[in-house]
Design a protein around this nucleic acid. Sequence first.
DNA 1: CAGTCTTGGCTAACTAAGATAGCTTTTGAG
DNA 2: CTCAAAAGCTATCTTAGTTAGCCAAGACTG
Lengths: 192, 192
Amino acid sequence: MPRAGLTTAAVVAAGAALADECGFHNVTMGLLAERLGVRTPSLYKHVESLADLQHRIAGLAAIEISEAVGRSVQGLAGRDALAALAKAMREYVMAHPGAYTATVGAEIIGQDDPLDIAGRRLIGSMSAVLRGYGIADVEMDHALRAVRSILHGFAVLQASNGFQWAADPDVSFAWMVDFVDRGLRVRSEPAG
Amino acid sequence: MPRAGLTTAAVVAAGAALADECGFHNVTMGLLAERLGVRTPSLYKHVESLADLQHRIAGLAAIEISEAVGRSVQGLAGRDALAALAKAMREYVMAHPGAYTATVGAEIIGQDDPLDIAGRRLIGSMSAVLRGYGIADVEMDHALRAVRSILHGFAVLQASNGFQWAADPDVSFAWMVDFVDRGLRVRSEPAG
DNA sequence: CAGTCTTGGCTAACTAAGATAGCTTTTGAG
DNA sequence: CTCAAAAGCTATCTTAGTTAGCCAAGACTG
């Protein structure tokens, strides 16, 4: 019987693809094995467990997002950079909803966890954009969290069909980018 | 053998409590049955399946949130209303992280799904707050989505420990409310 | 108060999925 | 060519969800 020639990377990539097709929570060892033309126990030569597979899918997604975002903001600043960053994240989530779902609630394990490294890189890109808006260092953490929250929240809501009825998500997305841009450009004034 | 006197509502409430204690994904029929002093199959007299239980927990959380939010914004407007709404949501999520997690990605089923009804009520409260900011009808859907996204995103990130290192989430939260307030008060101007 | 019907709980058993043990065979290094 | 590591397999075990069918608690009726 000829070997299938699997590797950990190939298994994880197939798992991510399967998640995009069938939904993250429908990825089972059995289904993935079938997809790879192999019996279930064979997968355990490449990943430790289902939980390990899920964690690796999350890591893969995080790396891909951070790379896409990093590329997208190159040479841009201010509103253009913000719009490019948001667009890159959103395009990734729409193309890979299953893999992105893996990152929601994924725990960082150990020190050289790709999930952690990619997360830091993504936050680095966001920081750069925010510095372009003149956000002070003391405010940076808070601004980062706000921007992460709105991008992540939009992604989760859209990926899980949380937006019902009515308006076009594309237009809402553009509106949101404007909204963030306004919030970042206007310095704090006393409420009126 | 005396009866336990369970009802669907009691089972769902216990499930929600268990989710808050142990994490939503650790709620199993067996664990919940044990907690209720009953054998696993007995639960099926009150809920149809684990999926049904999870959906009902999501519905319960949605109702509780919408009620808390509705109460909190009574008699307030503008920034005060926004801050109260955000605070109510956040307090619910911190007190009931497991139940809130149930609502993430929960599907609306049928027409009188409590999840749907509560969702509409929550959106109603948000709309009222936004109208207080003078958001025009044509923009309402987009503004709603932006505000939902940032509140939901913050909740998910905090509930899943997504904020690492550094700053106090309380301060970040206050900053975020300010940020949204600024974004809503400043009308669209051409980018500078 | 007795009979009976509904219903909530039980035990027993089935299924699906994750996981492990241990065998076999490919395959690459020396 | 030899042989050891690695990759795949079958068989088996465990756990959790679920169903079937029994039995008794307790409410309703005559």
